[in-house]
Nucleic acid binder design. Structure first.
Lengths: 227, 227
DNA sequence: GATTTGATGTGAAACAAATCACAAAACACG
DNA sequence: CGTGTTTTGTGATTTGTTTCACATCAAATC
């Protein structure tokens, strides 16, 4: 049954990825051991939260001894499948798709975009190291590379159709850059990235803050007048 | 004082933008009136939540009469500043920056990237309708266009430096595509978009789901054996 | 080896968000 | 105009998340 599955990614998981990024950086700097408050400082949360998050995902350190960085990173890699290679397909080679296909961080994180797809045969001439195929070869590639996760970067008008096809061919998780809510079976993971919303949220909070600051200034003025 | 401000964008705000997108679509289809459950169906939430969200942002409809689409959209535009034009600057004209500079949805949502910047003078030859300046002209442009919000799409190594400069010149909100946590004063809004994390989250949940499904299958198998 | 110290890990408490449930309002219809 | 119906708007309740507090352990010190 197809429906809108509002699958929200837990904040605790997002924070875990923050911790990991910090750990990688600290390791490069030669640090070997961290404490919950080290990570807390690095990521702008409390040390309680770090420990609670680790607890949620069953990550354990050493009483009093903190966490050995290598040990911790290894544990995280196992739990979050970060060490294994992941084959990804990318659908839509417009501006955004092209940029994503060239995004070198994916490869550094063991996520390989093994192929990209586009309906427009002209796009298929463009290259970026990664082959661009027509949609007809989708199943073949997904099967051959055992792909489970896809990125949708097509115009909103065709996003649902593309999602349907991906799922029909065995895709189980989608990062969707098209500004539409995809209707999918409940056992398919959807993560929507809406660029306009990201900007509009910031604009809203900036305005809100300006209003508050404005009030503060008025208050200060008032106080100045009074005393 | 500079620090990591973990400014999380409320889920209720994200949902509001979903509602709005649905409203725009419904309006285009000729619909004039909606009810909380209309929007609920469209966006995969409950009607309670729709009303509660509206309540949080002081959006009111008509008892029994539902919501007049035009009226509702207008209210939203006012509250979330969606009708006013917003001038944005974009720093970093690498692959991602280029794609963002060409992203037509921004303009459709009244967000104009008035200028882009890059340290590399060669990038400044490339065009996309939007001028590419060297960083030295940042202040001039920010002042002239009264820019309050910026997009950072530079490599992580220079992201902090760029953020500092933006804030020094009056930028109050940043959408940051570089995979680093920016240290900024507490009255600056930061919204981080980390593409690797978005993918890795999906990969994690897909694995988790596969494991659960695996268990389900084993259970079914067990039941089959038993009876 | 006993004692102090410093950090983890996790129940309990506080807080926040989502859901429930229903009073209040407005329209429909007799 | 009064009664029934429908949908909003929001307190009350439940559920989920974060913070607090401390027992527990391991290292350091005496």
């Amino acid at each position: 049954m197809k429906q809108i599955t509002k699958h929200v990614i837990k904040n605790s998981l997002k924070r875990i990825f923050l911790y990991r990024a910090s750990l990688v950086r600290l390791k490069m700097m030669g640090v070997e051991k961290v404490f919950s408050y080290t990570l807390a400082n690095e990521t702008g949360v409390t040390s309680d939260q770090v420990r609670k998050d680790f607890s949620e995902y069953n990550i354990k350190g050493n009483k009093r001894g903190g966490y050995d960085i290598n040990d911790l990173l290894e544990k995280m890699e196992n739990i979050f499948h970060l060490n294994k290679d992941h084959n990804i397909v990318l659908i839509g080679m417009g501006n955004m798709g092209l940029a994503l296909s060239k995004y070198s961080k994916f490869v550094q994180h063991n996520m390989n975009v093994v192929a990209t797809f586009d309906i427009d045969p002209f796009k298929q001439k463009m290259r970026s190291g990664i082959p661009v195929y027509s949609m007809s070869r989708l199943k073949e590639i997904i099967d051959r590379f055992r792909v489970k996760v896809a990125i949708i970067a097509v115009p909103e008008i065709s996003a649902q159709e593309v999602a349907d096809e991906l799922i029909r061919h065995g895709i189980m998780g989608i990062v969707n850059f098209a500004p539409v809510l995809l209707k999918v079976p409940p056992d398919v993971i959807i993560n929507n990235v809406n660029l306009c919303d990201e900007l509009e949220s910031v604009i809203y909070y900036v305005h809100k803050l300006m209003k508050v600051d404005g009030l503060k200034n008025i208050e200060l003025l008032y106080r100045d007048m009074k005393y």
